[in-house]
């Protein structure tokens, strides 16, 4: 993706909750939950499909009252894209560079917080919430069902051991 392209924030299939300094996003397609810090959230809100990266930089500077580098905005866009929060994936500007290198380069130059998106996947099955109870009728039925700490074989007493 080059700077003339205009990233679009994804809206469909997402549950969004604004919080002071953070935005929570739950992706109902992937069942992933994301917490965007203020920097990532500001960039995400600016991805309206009409604004180029340069426009987003200017918008960010207006809203934050702070000069930011284009690389910082790109870092946010990269993360938004890789977490499925843009309508279409963008090509990483930092392809071939390690995340550590990128963060080091941008972090030293930045006076605003780096964009951070914390993500976790909601458990795949509600059975993950069970205790180690199992059905002896399916003696090996524990494997996909039980949380960490329970064994994989169902005892005659109905406990995963």
């Amino acid at each position: 993706m080059n700077n003339s392209q205009k990233p679009v924030a994804r809206h469909s299939g997402l549950v969004v909750q604004e919080m002071p300094g953070e935005v929570l996003v739950y992706d109902m397609d992937s069942n992933k939950a994301h917490c965007l810090n203020e920097t990532a959230a500001m960039v995400w809100r600016s991805c309206d499909g009409n604004s180029s990266v340069e426009d987003i930089v200017r918008s960010f500077e207006r809203n934050s009252g702070t000069k930011v580098s284009e690389d910082l905005i790109w870092l946010a866009i990269d993360q938004l894209s890789s977490n499925g929060l843009l309508a279409e994936k963008v090509e990483s500007k930092f392809a071939g560079q390690s995340r550590r290198e990128v963060l080091k380069k941008i972090g030293f130059a930045s006076v605003v917080a780096l964009p951070v998106i914390a993500s976790l996947v909601a458990p795949q099955s509600v059975l993950a919430f069970t205790s180690c109870t199992c059905n002896p009728g399916q003696p090996v039925g524990c494997t996909p069902q039980v949380p960490a700490g329970c064994g994989s074989n169902c005892s005659g007493g109905g406990v995963c051991v």
């Binding site: 929570l24 739950y26 994301h34 917490c35 810090n37 914390a118 909601a122 458990p123 919430f129």
Partner: peptide, 13 residues
């Protein structure tokens, strides 16, 4: 933070 806490809670919700 509240946001990160909720993310943690989601894994148990």
């Amino acid at each position: 933070s509240p946001g990160v806490g909720i993310i943690e809670l989601i894994t148990h919700t």
